[in-house]
Nucleic acid binder design. Structure first.
Lengths: 225, 225
DNA sequence: GCAAAAGTGTTTGGGATACACCCATGC
DNA sequence: GCATGGGTGTATCCCAAACACTTTTGC
């Protein structure tokens, strides 16, 4: 390979789609841009990735700096999503973005403010770059992951009720599931076990609390959906 | 974002895992390196991706130059696989590789030679970089794609027999399937139609030829496996 | 006692699995 | 007529889907 000019790589950036569930609504973490391009618009937390660091390392730094979220402590699950590379996606010049998708729970960005917030995936503000497409793709991926893996654990507390579990699925899938069939099926998958704790809240019957046998990603023997 | 030093992006490369089926064996296209690093070892076709071109555009150029394969004409299916970015994967310096996975059929690299060949995925030569891992991952992805999409069309000619279809699955999955169950299931998926042609070869009953209704990727209503 | 969510079973239909023999052809 | 791969059916079991009422609690 001979280059007549010195080789000029594209800029490499990283972006994170961080989901969490709040009141049974799937939300995504965004930061508001204060500078051009897209000043005032909202964007996924992210930034440049430099030589000598992995994209995940770069992501950890950027997400911590820009949103006050520690991807290792605050997220229960993270995976690489896709690399977006269209030449026009950044008006300043060609930037290839390696994106990640992660799930957390009651994340409280230490930088929480009017410029760092979670938004419901179904009512996003105006977004910078191609971030709307990235979020759409991440949501699709998350939904797929819930159908064939135990990835829901990423969205739930350590102990949870079956109703919480079901509503997590419903929030991600965007549709309702049958309570009896859902419970029957999930319990036969052998992913969770009953605890001795009960969840008591409100004027109604308390619910058994369950926990996952395993907080690591595994494939289901029988898919959902 | 203020950088005290000028921002130095990692090198960006692209690599292609190109599969085809030859005599019911799943093969992958490799080129032999003539220079260090890894001189003499085999590698996936690929190379640098520069500013101003998408990674797929870069891939088309590199695969054509190095292996004489036109990814648009010779491949029936291609998708982005994953971005490999460990700092040590290239001994010359940090290089992030955006990889693609594709399928073709009777590809004849115009550069076919002792340094551009297909190898069975189960008996690969010594590989440069992390290309062994990339191939493993691509194989896994292909296998997954066959279970929940119609992606097999990428490995088959326009018209094919049910036995060819089944052996394509078997070659990718690496295990045998029951003939009667396979046929019954595939025919009820409504993905293929009978043609009026027959495949006549050898001293035995001729086989009906089928074709896909649709040569575009779609999800199956019921997964395999 | 009443409002609110938790918990629970049965029926039915469709698809997955297991399994072995006849058919059409070339030589 | 025989060797070779093409083509076919049935029984069983498991699971998905549909569907409504009772239980436990706080007030």
């Amino acid at each position: 390979m001979n280059y007549t000019k010195p080789y000029q790589p594209p800029t490499v950036t990283v972006d994170a789609v961080i989901f969490q569930l709040t009141n049974n609504v799937l939300e995504v973490l965004l930061v508001q841009r204060s500078k051009d391009p897209f000043s005032g618009a909202w964007a996924l937390p992210g930034g440049y990735s430099a030589q000598g660091e992995t994209t995940l390392e770069a992501l950890a730094v950027k997400v911590s700096t820009k949103a006050g979220v520690d991807i290792h402590k605050d997220l229960k699950y993270i995976e690489q999503l896709y690399t977006f590379d269209s030449v026009a996606r950044d008006p300043r010049g060609h930037a290839v973005s390696v994106t990640y998708m992660g799930c957390g729970l009651k994340i409280e960005p230490t930088k929480a403010s009017e410029t760092t917030q979670f938004f419901p995936v179904d009512s996003l503000p105006a977004l910078a770059y191609d971030h709307k497409e990235i979020i759409r793709y991440a949501h699709e991926r998350l939904s797929a992951k819930l159908t064939y893996t135990n990835a829901v654990y990423g969205l739930l507390p350590k102990q949870f009720t079956l109703t919480q579990l079901q509503t997590a699925y419903e929030a991600v899938f965007g549709r309702e599931l049958d309570k009896r069939n859902f419970r029957k099926k999930f319990l036969t998958l052998d992913l969770i076990r009953e605890t001795k704790e009960m969840f008591r809240v409100g004027a109604h019957r308390p619910a058994k609390l369950y926990e996952f046998n395993n907080q690591k990603l595994e494939s289901l023997t029988r898919s959902f959906d």
